[in-house]
Design a protein around this nucleic acid. Structure first.
Lengths: 187, 187
DNA sequence: GAATATTCTTAATCTAGATTAAGAAGCAAA
DNA sequence: TTTGCTTCTTAATCTAGATTAAGAATATTC
């Protein structure tokens, strides 16, 4: 699926309108381990991942990396706290695989909304879906044991599981790699 | 703060436009213990809480109530999974205090967006803030111990803490009432 | 194809917070 | 002012998952 198909699922755009939309996006590439958003950098963009895989992580009190999100093909990702409040980001967005993204800066975003007001609707609906996914994630977090969460995750996200190392998955789920290893040995 | 002020923080509206906006909203009142959204009902509305306090909860595998959200004055609340997919809600929204809300049904919402396209921008921005708050909550959830989460919550949400019983707060934080009691005895 | 760095596994021990069980406050009705 | 609810507290015991410490696979580099 390409961005055009993705957008068409939320709003309908003519060829001309889509061309306008595209003109506000900038393509960028990132090698594994490089950062889309650095620690303490002000987040200025929303990223649409054309192809690849990224993780968004912060640091716990003891300085350990804690992964909060992954992003793969056809996902938008950004640090909204930093983006909306223009504050230094406490979160890092880093490529895991070679990753190609469309980058939409806040400035361009505002201009785009003016030139193509449908953009508001597009992002209103994207945000609703993202919020819904979050609400769902919270439900799993509170209603399932760590083992159940792991089993559920790899079931729903089979493809994904191949793409990130197990210890990152453990971090995302809020457990230790040793614990995942223990579950796997039972399966 | 009233709804008008709330809306003005996101978009600017003339008197006439605000009147149009209001005309799509329906006022409803709920006594403590009554439900804005029942279990397995299809969620058809977004609720803006004018005054009062509600909780949104589901059930764990063992049938225990698990609170996922609270809503108080000037918050929007809805079950987006049920709202967007038109599926029976696994979550209940219930008044804790006498609560008065504006109710915006999906039908009315679509009409409103057509008549007053600025509404898209309003809700795009509301959803971004809501998503941001969620992102922040997840950070606390993963980076703080249960005790730290409790201390942080009552610090940031002092007023709130008076309005809901301790056992509901425990549920929201994902701990037992006994554990909260233990922390409090230390303070 | 050895050397080095990453990632994963196994097993013993430990701990934050759950569970269970009682009882103590608080509060409403009558 | 007693009866009956609902909420909160205390304390003993238990457990899911963490921590620690080795070692075993697996990749990567030269």
């Amino acid at each position: 699926m390409c961005l055009k198909e993705y957008v068409q699922r939320y709003i309908s755009l003519s060829e001309e309108e889509y061309a306008v939309f595209l003109s506000y996006l900038e393509t960028k590439s990132f090698a594994p381990g490089t950062r889309l958003l650095a620690y303490e950098e002000r987040c200025q963009s929303r990223f649409y991942i054309k192809k690849g895989c990224v993780r968004m992580y912060g640091y716990t009190e003891k300085g350990k990396e804690q992964i909060y999100h992954f992003g793969i093909d056809n996902w938008w990702i950004s640090n909204y706290e930093s983006l909306l409040n223009d504050t230094p980001s406490q979160l890092v967005i880093e490529a895991i695989e070679p990753t190609e993204v469309y980058c939409l800066t806040s400035d361009k975003f505002e201009q785009l909304c003016q030139q193509l007001p449908k953009t508001e609707r597009l992002f209103r609906r994207i945000m609703e879906r993202a919020y819904m996914a979050f609400q769902k994630r919270l439900e799993f977090l509170f209603s399932l044991s760590s083992e159940e969460q792991y089993r559920h995750f790899i079931e729903v996200n089979a493809a994904f599981t191949q793409r990130v190392p197990q210890y990152m998955l453990a971090s995302y789920l809020g457990v230790t790699p040793e614990f995942i290893s223990k579950i796997r040995s039972k399966m």
